[in-house]
Design a protein around this nucleic acid. Structure first.
Lengths: 229, 229
DNA sequence: TAAATTTGTCACGATTTTGTCACACGGTTA
DNA sequence: TAACCGTGTGACAAAATCGTGACAAATTTA
């Protein structure tokens, strides 16, 4: 299994290479966007790990450009590395077709786990959805509908709860109009405000530390709800 | 993804069509306002790019009319093309519900980037309005309805307060007739002078440092109110 | 099929938001 | 000077919005 690592921070790139090699991968290294494209074309890696923030010439500038460029011709799994707190990055990266993203800083073990998850899904032919979402100290795995707060036991969400949470996390930092949420969770036809209120409530009971004083899922009166605002 | 291009300059329209097709879009062309409406109704495009300046019969004259007409029935993202860096055009366009505008001349790449940004925003459900307004030491985020005076805690405005402030800030420096404000905040039907007085009052209480001596929202007797005069 | 889980519906109270009424103040004008 | 107008202000009522609990219907699981 070839894994292409793209990062201008050579120390980090080397560390990733070392870790992946130990896990049986054949690591390839690129230190900038053009190098990444070249390596991708010459080596046909099975998975690509790209740092979002890289210097470089305009047009082929950063991890997003690499992602976009590769997605034009290939469905190879791509994992983006991004610094914390930049939700716009996440949304943008996902819309560009990345399969997963990992927030820095991360442990090498963690990254390897993500790589394997992405590969497993890719081989199963369903690289549609996301492998996982991270935000502060919470982690959500839509596939298994497992929600985990670091240091605590993980919780299994119901199908609707998971769809709601996924939609909220995918658009973290934004206020989503109730109608949009309803459309997305229940589909155009059914679904109403009351059902959303109940679902929000149930999700909060499972997910929030103090459901009376929610800190993850907040409401904006007259509009809708948002995650991480 | 269907992209409707409306421009009487066929050379430019063709160039845009070529560029968008290369990026995976299915371009549709219209060379005047009536043609644009027809294409919009028949083809249901995912995004519309309209040149502001077009010849044509009165009533359905230019890009603004197209924008206004389409916004009556649809939230499809609209990008306006304009030559003048005339702020009035921009303000007018945005107040008519356009999602973005691009000043001519522009590079095709640039336009494609804008198109993708707008589509991303639309799919994320935040085709709302502009990201934020700034004026001197105040900042307003319409989406979260957060008002901040630098160095102070931010305040959450109510829906109507936010709409009023947004309208005032969008037209900062001008005195807006009370009737216009009422129409914009409450919509054509309801709304009266008394309600506006109360809303102004409540907004001032939240926003002004000294509500008795307002410095942001000023009144011009017999006409209306203005922001930053 | 029975039990358990998940989802939808109804009703209530608390709070916030919005609308309405009454009145005071200053300036202008008859 | 008195009447009038536009505006600012306060108090209160109406409406909207949200969170909550209880329970029924539907679905999944054993």
């Amino acid at each position: 299994m070839k894994a292409l690592i793209v990062d201008d921070d050579r120390t980090l790139a080397d560390l990733l290479a070392f870790t992946l090699r130990r896990e049986g991968f054949e690591p390839l290294l690129a230190y900038d966007a053009p190098g990444a494209i070249k390596a991708f074309e010459n080596e046909a890696p099975d998975v690509i790990i790209v740092d979002v923030n890289m210097p470089g010439e305009p047009g082929l500038r950063n991890g997003f450009d690499v992602c976009r460029r590769i997605r034009k011709t290939s469905d190879v799994p791509i994992i983006l590395l991004t610094v914390r707190d930049d939700e716009d990055d996440i949304v943008q990266g996902l819309s560009l077709g990345a399969d997963d993203y990992v927030l820095k800083p991360f442990s090498p073990r963690q990254l390897v786990a993500r790589v394997q998850t992405v590969l497993r899904r890719a081989s199963a032919g369903r690289s549609q959805e996301l492998a996982s979402f991270e935000y502060q100290d919470v982690l959500f795995d839509p596939q298994r509908r497992q929600f985990t707060r670091t240091g605590q036991d993980s919780i299994t969400l119901t199908r609707l709860e998971a769809r709601l949470l996924q939609y909220l996390m995918l658009n973290a930092g934004q206020v989503l109009p109730a109608e949009h949420i309803i459309d997305h969770v229940w589909g155009q036809r059914s679904g109403n405000t009351e059902m959303l209120r109940q679902l929000i409530r149930r999700l909060r009971l499972k997910v929030e530390l103090t459901p009376e004083e929610p800190d993850l899922i907040t409401n904006l009166a007259g509009v809708g709800y948002g995650f991480g605002i």
